[in-house]
């Protein structure tokens, strides 16, 4: 996640991994554009959360939960609900994560995953309005990494999408100034779904879905959110300060477009499993 390339890593490791890449190989034998095995389990917090999903991406595991609450809209958008995604890097997931308030890398994780949801307008904010200017639904999707072996962003993006797509919540209305349930159960009003793909740059080589050892030696990473119509809805270059040429970015975008079909299918299959 963070800029681990600046942490103390043996130069031997760095050379070993980059030599291997130059031979066209990765530590775990995958192709450069190949994701690890992905398992998605939805409704893992069925009793308390309105939506939830557990995602295993190789040895990286995250759990995402969605809470739908009723609150007041922001003054500049009185007829729009609120969607918010947060993520933490809890110390349970890795000896590299420390206790305490979120640091830059945790904030970046949360904001990058959030942007993937919000900028692609996954949830139609206008349809989250109960009474204009007074009551709107507020959708909170929170991600907790449980096990960290690289590529938290993509794992979190899959988990958040699977959780949002399977969210069910009670319909509310305002009656005589009071908030009451109508008895109906709703699914979230969806507009557009995008999944995030992260490539790491090591020397002049791009690889998808890094494991931790690869993240340690990356020059930087580049995350792209792609919707089902091949639109890019969010991007972020981070995870180190290595610069990237326009050619490499072009190549990275092709990798994301190609991988996107499979990842969308993984999410859709998980959603179908409970329908």
């Amino acid at each position: 996640m963070g800029d681990y390339s600046t942490e103390t890593i043996s130069h031997i490791d760095r050379e070993f991994i980059s030599d291997l890449l130059r031979k066209g190989e990765r530590l775990d034998g995958r192709a450069f554009n190949e994701y690890r095995d992905i398992e998605v389990e939805v409704n893992v917090v069925a009793a308390k959360a309105e939506g939830s999903a557990l995602v295993r991406l190789g040895n990286t595991t995250v759990v995402a939960g969605v809470k739908v609450l009723v609150g007041e809209p922001y003054s500049d958008s009185p007829d729009e609900g609120v969607t918010m995604v947060t993520a933490e890097m809890s110390p349970i997931a890795s000896p590299l994560f420390e206790l305490g308030p979120p640091k830059e890398d945790a904030i970046e994780l949360a904001r990058v995953v959030d942007r993937g949801v919000r900028e692609s307008e996954t949830v139609d904010a206008k349809k989250l309005c109960i009474a204009e200017g007074k009551k709107v639904y507020m959708v909170f999707a929170d991600v907790y990494p449980l096990e960290y072996d690289g590529n938290l962003i993509d794992a979190s993006s899959i988990a958040v999408n699977a959780a949002l797509l399977t969210t069910k919540y009670p319909e509310m209305k305002v009656e005589e100034g009071k908030l009451v349930q109508t008895g109906e159960v709703l699914s979230l009003p969806l507009k557009n779904v995008a999944v995030e793909h992260t490539v790491a740059k090591i020397d002049d080589i791009l690889i998808l879905d890094t494991i931790l050892k690869e993240e340690f030696v990356q020059d930087c990473r580049f995350t792209m959110a792609v919707d089902k119509n091949n639109n890019f809805t969010a991007m972020q270059k981070g995870g180190g300060s290595g610069p990237m040429s326009l050619e490499l970015i072009d190549q990275a975008m092709d990798m994301a477009l190609e991988a996107s079909k499979d990842i969308h299918k993984v999410v859709d299959d998980a959603v179908k499993s409970v329908e």
């Binding site: 942007r115 900028e119 692609s120 580049f222 919707d227 091949n230 639109n231 890019f232 809805t233 969010a234 991007m235 972020q236 270059k237 300060s241 610069p243 990237m244 040429s245 326009l246 970015i249 072009d250 975008m253 092709d254 477009l257």
Partner: peptide, 18 residues
């Protein structure tokens, strides 16, 4: 001409981004 900061939001096709 290498890129050191790159972020994006909104909706773009690949050709537009390039």
């Amino acid at each position: 001409d290498e890129i050191t900061l790159l972020q994006q939001d909104g909706m773009f096709k690949k050709e537009e981004l390039l």
